[in-house]
Write a protein that binds this DNA or RNA. Sequence first.
DNA 1: CTTGAATTGCGAATCAATTATCAATAAGTT
DNA 2: AACTTATTGATAATTGATTCGCAATTCAAG
Lengths: 126, 126
Amino acid sequence: MPPRTTSQRAAVRTAIETANRPLSPQEILDLARKEQPSLGIATVYRTVKAGTEDGWLVPVDLPHGPTRYEPAGKAHHHHFECTDCKSVFGVEGCPGELNALVPEGAELTDHEIILYGRCADCKSNT
Amino acid sequence: MPPRTTSQRAAVRTAIETANRPLSPQEILDLARKEQPSLGIATVYRTVKAGTEDGWLVPVDLPHGPTRYEPAGKAHHHHFECTDCKSVFGVEGCPGELNALVPEGAELTDHEIILYGRCADCKSNT
DNA sequence: CTTGAATTGCGAATCAATTATCAATAAGTT
DNA sequence: AACTTATTGATAATTGATTCGCAATTCAAG
């Protein structure tokens, strides 16, 4: 009954922890298949779901596109999405005090800042 | 061949311009039906698509949920989404200089800030 | 090494949002 | 009022993301 350690779960986790940016299930699959060619997308979804419940993974939801996942434990940060390749990168820092923007009578509990533009790679491969 | 002015298109436009917040197609339908009870969701989607192409409407894409629409011409602003009722509200102001957060070598072209919390209505109806 | 349960990969199924189809209706020109 | 054609509403179809069902596989306890 206890969870088992399998090579596919290891491959998924390695892919996520090695990439230095949030990955979508499809991106995880592509990366992890270099280690585990037979890996299926369903296993990626299952692993990512379990990881989120177990707490070592954090889902990153942005407009458009699938949910991305990054390792838990990072300091407060936000994200940059390349409008070309759709890759998402974490960005350090936060402008801070956003309470001033909140509607009268409402209560702020969280926030997300999304930057859009072209990443370094896409700029060079013009 | 020219586009025609119909009561349903008028109802959709009125709903959007009357609400003081971005509306989803379903919300537009609900509001516009008070004026045009026979209105169908397909017409809302068609009108909203045309409005965006014509430039008098702006789509607001946030994580989760459908695209919302608001009248074009508003000053730079961001959005607040109620975690309870899912309503979205525009919020004035912007923390400003975000270039400092952009990844090395990347180019910033746009950004969105999303605030989450409970709106005034949901707080009172605890 | 056996064996039972957890896990996997595949394809079918689901789900929400949006678009396409098409016969019936209604602008607006003449 | 007649007529041409854009528009509409209902519903089927599509799309992209994610989950399910199940037989085959493989951990890992004994």
